[in-house]
Design a protein around this nucleic acid. Sequence first.
DNA 1: CATATGATTCCA
DNA 2: GGAATCATATGA
Length: 200
Amino acid sequence: MTVASYPPAPREYFLRDARYMARALVGAWLVRSAPGDVRVVRIVETEAYRGPGDAACHARAGLTRRTRTLLGPPGFAYVFLVYGRHECFNVVCLRDGSGHAVLIRAAEPVTGIARGSRCDGPGRVARAMGITRAEDGCDLTGQPLYVSPRQGRVSVGVSARVGVAYAGEFAGRPWRFFDRASAHVSRPPASAIGLGNGKE
DNA sequence: CATATGATTCCA
DNA sequence: GGAATCATATGA
């Protein structure tokens, strides 16, 4: 397999609500293609963040230094630091100023990922792909970092988002999506099907 | 300027 | 179970 097997998605691919974008990204590929550094992972878990009206979305703060790319045009990377140590990688979508984005929460190593390096968990995905805040605002429709659409079918599970308990009624919205067949989802899918996970 | 906290991970 | 660790957002 070469990078040619994973063509970049065009801008139009990103012009949709985060709910649909998040679902579409399950099974899609995230590719880093730079001279001497080719990495590919298969996305298996995502979450939708839906703009200023979503109490869990950073866009609720309005236009600030941090939300500049989140509130920018679709098809670009929104990368932020959480808990002072972990970078989180998001795909901005829908339309310029909408504040919609999809958090990539977990992936499966495909190519160029160091052996033993895990990709389950948003901080780990970013680290495995070498994504830092330096990539914030990066255009995702071409090299060096891009998304390649899913090939084939995927059975997608749905659950509430993780780590957003502070968001009131929005904490329970079923805006997390994952590949039911993947062993690399960051949390047990059991929490997903409404059976509860013993917490919260 | 001061302070609280987080879209998490790692270790005990 | 709890600490780590710092940029951001918010309020004085």
